[in-house]
Write a protein that binds this DNA or RNA. Structure first.
Length: 406
DNA sequence: CTACAACGACAGACCACAAAGAGTA
DNA sequence: TATACTCTTTGTGGTCTGTCGTTGT
């Protein structure tokens, strides 16, 4: 299983599609996931380079390999030397990103190391969600997005306060500075939309469609700097870095995080930080401390990257489906380093905790209703034991009158 | 320590029908 | 090419049911 693309059976598998539970080469990934709107929602990530069958969650910078949770645990938990390896959370993506988008994202990060710190933030800051034409702000979906982002921002600010006020314990925890940087990056870049949205004239979110962008494999070629002829060779090469044409895979991964788009990605980033700081910040964590391996904590840092966000089709649920553990979805910490009671809290921190928990509680992760009219109809339909009944038939539940026909 | 029952949580199935989408004339 | 029509597919919510994990005996 794995290693070879499960669809074409020829190329080396690079991408793991969670929805299909399949390992795919990039060509097949593109073909399959450009088929329709549903397939475009599939979240994908890299394939674990150890077992070649599970979605990679981390990238070990030292070893330059992408690993799934199990392999990461096997590799890093057993050895004291390996346990110090720096690991990066891998991001998922959805939609059908064109080579243009990918190359744009990756090139500006690959081209200039300082981009991650300045250009990225600056460039994104110049793009505003409100830049979608004036009328768009009235558009329900855009409005909704704005609220989500606003909420995410508030949450991020809360988290920032939490992190600042919460001392970190435990050597295996990720760098607090990095996480803080992520929060700041998020706050600094939440005004972004894609340049295409901004440049699309009268187009708003709904009109923005990835399909408009060329998706030919030649572009992948350009993107990854390899010829089609060379692809086989490179796919067969054990060093995946060759394929990506990057000196350091972590740079490419950073690009995913650095260009976090609106909404879901922002939420993902918030959760990224949330998971990291929750150990010290959440009072829940103080009472529900479990003894799970540190890697699980790292697993919760998996953030989301979704191209399809730009189409306005995705929501928080998409983000949730982005390979994060169920614990992440629930926002519950899974592992907590020792944290003495004395290190807890000032009043401001308590306030921040309360606000954070309140917002977490009120945030909605429920499913998205695509057709309001159908929802409205379903809500008033008569039922028998929860099932719809034919009009005129006996029913035991009438939503409108709360009555029975028999 | 093992086996079993009881319990809760959760996911999926089920239903009718309007609306959306595809196909054809 | 545009329009009208038919047929198929999709999506909606409350309840039930089966499965799984946990807990207590």
């Amino acid at each position: 299983m794995g290693y070879i693309c499960e669809y074409c059976g020829e190329q080396r598998s690079i991408v793991y599609c969670r929805s299909d539970s399949a390992c795919l080469c990039l060509s097949c990934d593109q073909n399959i996931h450009s088929a329709n709107a549903l397939s475009q929602r599939h979240s994908r990530t890299l394939v674990c380079e150890r077992c070649n069958s599970q979605p990679a969650i981390f990238r070990c910078v030292e070893e330059r390999v992408s690993l799934c949770q199990n392999c990461d645990w096997m590799a890093h938990a057993s050895s004291s030397t390996c346990s110090t390896h720096k690991r990066q959370a891998l991001s998922c993506y959805t939609g059908c990103p064109s080579a243009v988008e990918l190359s744009t994202i990756w090139s500006f990060l690959l081209g200039d190391p300082s981009v991650h710190d300045s250009t990225c933030e600056q460039g994104m800051g110049s793009m505003s969600i409100t830049d979608c034409q004036p009328g768009d702000s009235q558009h329900p979906q855009v409005k909704e997005k704005s609220q989500d982002i606003s909420s995410a921002l508030d949450e991020a600010n809360d988290l920032h306060n939490l992190v600042k006020s919460a001392p970190f314990m435990g050597s295996s925890m990720p760098s607090l500075d990095n996480e803080l940087h992520n929060v700041e990056l998020l706050v600094g870049s939440t005004n972004l939309t894609w340049s295409k949205v901004r440049n699309s004239g009268t187009k708003g979110y709904d009109d923005f469609n990835m399909d408009e962008v060329d998706l030919s494999i030649e572009n992948y070629e350009e993107l990854f700097g390899v010829s089609i002829d060379n692809r086989d060779r490179l796919f067969k090469n054990e060093d995946i870095d060759d394929f990506f044409g990057t000196k350091d895979m972590s740079v490419a991964e950073s690009s995913f995080q650095g260009v976090n788009a609106v909404e879901g990605s922002a939420v993902g980033k918030v959760n990224t930080v949330k998971s990291a700081c929750s150990n010290a910040a959440s009072t829940e964590s103080m009472t529900s401390c479990k003894t799970e391996p540190p890697t699980l904590c790292f697993a919760m840092q998996q953030s989301s990257f979704s191209f399809s966000n730009l189409t306005g089709e995705s929501n928080a649920g998409d983000y949730q489906d982005c390979g994060a553990s169920s614990m992440l979805r629930m926002g519950e910490p899974s592992w907590h380093p020792p944290c003495p009671e004395s290190s807890m809290p000032s009043t401001s921190r308590s306030d921040a905790v309360l606000r954070y928990k309140e917002k977490k509680k009120t945030r909605q992760f429920d499913k998205r209703v695509r057709y309001v009219s159908r929802k409205a109809r379903a809500e008033v339909r008569r039922r028998v034991k929860g099932r719809f009944v034919k009009d005129g038939d006996a029913y035991d539940y009438d939503p409108l009158h709360q009555t029975r026909s028999y």
